[in-house]
Every structure is written in C-alpha cells, then in structure tokens.
C-alpha cells in the first residue's frame, strides 16, 4: 500500500445517508476480482443513465469535482454487503479520504486495508463542510482537517494511523511483529503453539 500523504482537494459532497455497498459497486461487478479498474464501476447506477452515458445531475459528474480526492457524505456510509470491491472502487476512482458522521463497520475496516482514510466527525462539522465549497487539507500525521478559516481535529486509533502512514496492511504489520507475537504466545497459558 502507498504510504498516506497529506491530501489537498475540494471535497465531493454526496448528500445521502445510509449509502450501501450495493450503490457503491452494484452486484454485476462482483464477479470481477482484479483489484484495479473498479473506479469506472463506482456508483454505477447513479453515475450513468440506461445508455451508460454520464448523468449530468450526479455529483461525481460535475466538472467542479473532477480529480477530487475527498468524498464528503452522510451517516452510515458503506452499510450492507461486506464486498471489499466498494473500497477498491473508491480508491481506484481517486478518493483517499471519506468524511462522514458514521461508517458501517465492515466497510470502515476495509478502507484501512486499502489505504483509504475514513474520518468520523461530529454531525455539525459534517454539515459545515456541506456548506462550504473550497479546498481542504487532510493531514493524518497531525490528525487535522484545515479549511481556509479554521482547523478541525479528528480521532483515529493509533495502530490504524500508523498503518496508513507507513502503507502497511495488517498482514505486513503482523509479519513485522511476528517475533513479538510468537514470544507472547509462548508465554501465554492459552498458547495455541
């Protein structure tokens, strides 16, 4: 995974609650297993009309947000099916950060496994971002979001932060600590070794 660097971008405002993974990547694309190339399927039914032409009324097709790296959305983002294709599609499209007041659990975990930073904020802060339409800067190291006028702090568990900053997935992290884990196992009376 790419180490996570500060991200500066206009956020794409997707003003919907309970966006489920069926909307993020519809079922017909689940059979595809390559991790790349999913960006074109992202929000497929919302993004394209029946002739597969971009719908001008969908936010991702607004030229203003072309190249945006931050998705701004509402509570319970990523609910429904556990398909990791949802995280693959968001990443492949170019999103590195998702800001919402809450995320569905499995999706939230899948983000970290794929180098996406999901940021949970208070609802009032999310509302505020929906009101503004200018560039913001997300700095994971400092755990801040900077706007023109102010800075908001966000929380993240330390091990998740470290993994993203170093570009580790859980598997490489565990391998890095394999010795320590083995040692702990040997000394534990519940050892499985």
């Amino acid at each position: 995974m790419e180490p996570f660097k500060p991200v500066k971008s206009i956020p794409t405002p997707l003003d919907k609650v309970n966006v489920d993974t069926d909307q993020i990547v519809p079922k017909q694309f689940l059979k595809l297993v390559q991790k790349t190339g999913f960006g074109k399927h992202l929000f497929f039914d919302w993004r394209y009309d029946k002739n597969e032409k971009p719908r001008s009324d969908f936010i991702l097709n607004n030229p203003q947000y072309r190249g945006s790296k931050i998705l701004l959305t509402r509570e319970n983002f990523g609910c429904g099916s556990s398909r990791e294709h949802a995280a693959w599609a968001l990443l492949d499209y170019g999103f590195r950060v998702i800001i919402s007041s809450s995320f569905a659990d499995i999706f939230y975990n899948n983000c970290f496994k794929n180098g996406i930073l999901p940021i949970k904020l208070e609802r009032k802060d999310v509302d505020e971002f929906f009101q503004t339409d200018s560039e913001i800067e997300v700095n994971l190291e400092e755990q801040t979001i900077k706007t023109k006028s102010h800075t908001i702090h966000f929380d993240i568990e330390n091990h998740r932060k470290k993994s993203l900053l170093n570009g580790y997935d859980d598997i490489s992290l565990a391998l890095q600590h394999e010795k320590k884990i083995l040692e702990h196992e040997r000394n534990s009376k519940y050892s499985s070794l």
Partner: peptide
C-alpha cells in the same frame, strides 16, 4: 463478517 483482506489474514494466521 469480514472483508477479503481480513479473511485472507485469518486464513494465514
């Protein structure tokens, strides 16, 4: 339920 990467991790470890 878990995502693919988490399951891969469980299968190995």
């Amino acid at each position: 339920g878990l995502g693919h990467t988490d399951i891969a991790y469980v299968l190995l470890n």
